[in-house]
Design a protein around this nucleic acid. Structure first.
Lengths: 249, 249
DNA sequence: CGATTCATTGAGCTCACTCAACCTTTGTGG
DNA sequence: CCACAAAGGTTGAGTGAGCTCAATGAATCG
C-alpha cells in the first residue's frame, strides 16, 4: 500500500483527490500506484454535496456515474409499482453506490442522503476503461462487487433464519464493525436512520424494532438512548446473534 | 455477437469449448471476439461431472476456481457454527458459481449439485488477467457480479415485504423466466429441489410451501404435481406477485 | 414555542411456525 | 420384480412471534 505522504502536498483541489481520503483503503484507489491514482483522480467528478433528504440517483435512471460516499450516510431504497418499498442498504464513507446498476445499465434503487453528505462521482464507462489499464483497479471493482453480494447474502441469511432480536443485534454489530474499520469507536455510535428505516431493512416493523431494542437493553447487551447506541458487551452480543443461546432445531 | 458457425467443426475436445455452448450468451464469453474466445477456452479446465448430492466447493475454502454451470442444477448453502443453514440460491446452466468468494478470496457458501451436473471451471487469477486484455470479458464479469447483487436484492425485497404465497409465486416466476431465456418452456418445468429447500431459500418452512402451493393452485395460477410445475396464467401470476390484489399499506 | 415527526408501549389479531399423523414417491436388497 | 425402508410431501390442530391499530410521550425544527 502506498504511503500517502509520498503525495506532494497541494492546496485543496477543486476535484476529488483520493490520496488524502480517510477511507482510501476501503475504496477504489486501494493498492493503485501513484500513476494509477493520478489517472483515477483525473476522472473523478468534483466532489458533490448532497443535502439531507436529497436523492442522489433514482431507480430506473440510466447508469452514468458510480459514487463513493466520501462523508455522510445514505440509504438505498427499492419501490414497486404498488407502492411497497424496501430499504436495501445503508452506506457510509468509503462505500460505493450504484454497483447494482451495472448489469442493466440502469439504477436498481434510489440513493437518498440521511444526513448532509459528500460523494465522489466517476463516470462508469471511463472507470471500466481505466480498470483495463490497471489490474489493481479492476481487482478492487471485482472485490467491491463481490462484497455487495456477500452483504446481501448475509442479510438474507438473517431474514431467513433469525428472530427479530437477533436481526437487530446483527444489524448493530454490522454498524459497529463498519465504524470500527473506519477508525471510529465500535462501541459508541449514533444511528443515522429512523427506527422505521431499520425495520424496513430487516424485514420488520418499527414497533418490533422498539421492542427488540428493549429486550437487548434488558439483556444488558446494549444501551440505547434516542439514536445514540452503546454496545455494552460486544462478545456477548456476538454470541447472542450467533444464536448460541437458542436450542438449534 | 459472433456466429458460432465461424468456428471450425472439431471432434469433441477434452477441454470445455464455449463456442458450442447452449448458454454462451449468458456466460463469460458473450461478446468476445474469436481471439478472446480462444484464449478463454485455453484457460478452461476440462469439463467436470458432479454427481447428484456431491459438493463442488465448500464454504471457507480458498478461491482457486470459478465455475459456470454447463448442465444440471446446483444449490448454494451457508452454514453457521450453530448449525443453522440457509440456501442462498439455485443455479442453472450458464450461471456462475463462486462470485461471492472474490472479496475474501474464500468461498462464502457450499455448492452442491441437485442433479448430475457438468461444470466449466476456470482459474480465477488467470481469468482476472485475461479480462485485463479483453474489455468484453471484464465487462461480462462486472455484469455477472452486478447481476448477483440484483438477484440477492430481489430476494431480500421478497423476504422483507411479501407474504408466503407471494414469495413462492415470485420464486416460480424467477424459475420460469430463467428457463425461458434458456430456450426451455417458461410454462412447464420441473423443480429440481425439495420443498424444504425452497422453504429455506425463501425464509419459510416446508409446510408453509405446501400450503402456499395449494393456495396458488386454488387460484388457478399454477398446476403442481410432485415436482412438475405448470404456470397456468403467467400474467395473472405476475399481477398476483406484484401485490396488486392486496390493499397497499 | 407550537407543530410535526419520531419513538415507545399496550391490546388484540394473524400468518406462519411447530408438532404430529398420514400419504406418496424413491430407492434398495432379496 | 416385489417388499420394505427411507425420504419427501401433504394436511390438521394448536401456538406464538411479529403485525396492526391506537394512544401517548419525546425529540426535532422552523
Amino acid at each position: 500500500m502506498r504511503n500517502t505522504l509520498d503525495t506532494p502536498l497541494e492546496v485543496q483541489a477543486p476535484v476529488s483527490t483520493c490520496s488524502g481520503c480517510r477511507v482510501y483503503e476501503l475504496c477504489l484507489p486501494f493498492g493503485l500506484d501513484s500513476e494509477g491514482t493520478r489517472r483515477l483522480e483525473s476522472l473523478m467528478l468534483p466532489r458533490t454535496r448532497v443535502k439531507k433528504g436529497a436523492t442522489l440517483f433514482c431507480q430506473g435512471a440510466s447508469l452514468e456515474t458510480l459514487y463513493a460516499v466520501r462523508a455522510g450516510f445514505f440509504k438505498t431504497t427499492m419501490i414497486t409499482q404498488v407502492g411497497r418499498d424496501y430499504i436495501s442498504g445503508f452506506h457510509m464513507q468509503g462505500e460505493m453506490l450504484g454497483l447494482d446498476a451495472v448489469t442493466a445499465e440502469r439504477h436498481f434503487c434510489n440513493a437518498i442522503a440521511l444526513e448532509d453528505s459528500v460523494v465522489c462521482g466517476i463516470n462508469f464507462s471511463q472507470l471500466e476503461q481505466l480498470s483495463q489499464e490497471f489490474p489493481a483497479l479492476q481487482r478492487n471493482m471485482n472485490k467491491l462487487m463481490s462484497q455487495e453480494v456477500v452483504n446481501s447474502r448475509s442479510i438474507l441469511f438473517m431474514m431467513g433464519s433469525m428472530s427479530s432480536d437477533e436481526r437487530l443485534g446483527a444489524f448493530l454489530l454490522s454498524l459497529s464493525y463498519r465504524y470500527g474499520i473506519r477508525g471510529y469507536s465500535p462501541y459508541f455510535f449514533s444511528l443515522r436512520m429512523r427506527r422505521e428505516e431499520i425495520a424496513s431493512h430487516l424485514g420488520l416493523r418499527k414497533e418490533t424494532i422498539c421492542r427488540s431494542l428493549s429486550r437487548l437493553r434488558e439483556l444488558s447487551l446494549v444501551h440505547v438512548s434516542g439514536r445514540d447506541v452503546e454496545i455494552l458487551n460486544l462478545p456477548k452480543l456476538k454470541h447472542y446473534v450467533a444464536g448460541c443461546d437458542r436450542p438449534s432445531p
